[in-house]
Amino acid sequence: MKRILAAPLIVLSLLPMASIADDQDVIDYRRHIMETLKAQTAALGMIMSGAIPDDNVVAHIDIIAATAATALKAFEPKVEGGDAKAEVWAKWDDFSARMNEFAAKTAAMSKTAHEKGKDEALLQAVDALTCKQCHDDYRVKKPAAEK
C-alpha cells in the first residue's frame, strides 16, 4: 500500500524539476560547465609545460571535448548575469557559431588523441582552446562583475 502511494508521489516530484530552474540555477549551471573547462585546460596546460607526466592527456582532452559539447545548451536560456555579457544573446548567431566551432575543434582533438596519439593531439591544443577570444567579447571583465 505504501509503495502504491509512494510511486505517484515520486513521479510528481520529479516531473516539474525540468521547469523550475530559476535564473540563478541557469547562471550556476553554466558556471559549473565553464569551471570544468577551466580546470581541465589548466590541468592540460600543466602537462604541456612539462610540470606533470602526460599519462592522463587523453582523459583531459576527452573531458574538455565532452564538456564543450554541453556548453552552448547552457547558454540557450536568455538569462543575463553572472559573467555573461548581454552580447551573448544580442549576437547569438556569432556566439553560437563560435561555441559550435569550439565543440568541433575539441572533438577533433579528441579524435586525434585516440587515433594518432597524445603528442599529435597536443599540437592542436593551442588552436582548439581559444577561450580568450570569446571571453574578450562575451565575458564581463572581472572587477565590473562584482561589487
Binding site: V126, C131, K132, H135, D136, K141, P143
Partner: peptide, 11 residues
Amino acid sequence: PSWEAMPAYAL
C-alpha cells in the same frame, strides 16, 4: 594567445 587581459582593479 591564451592569457586573458589583466583587468584594472583601481576602482
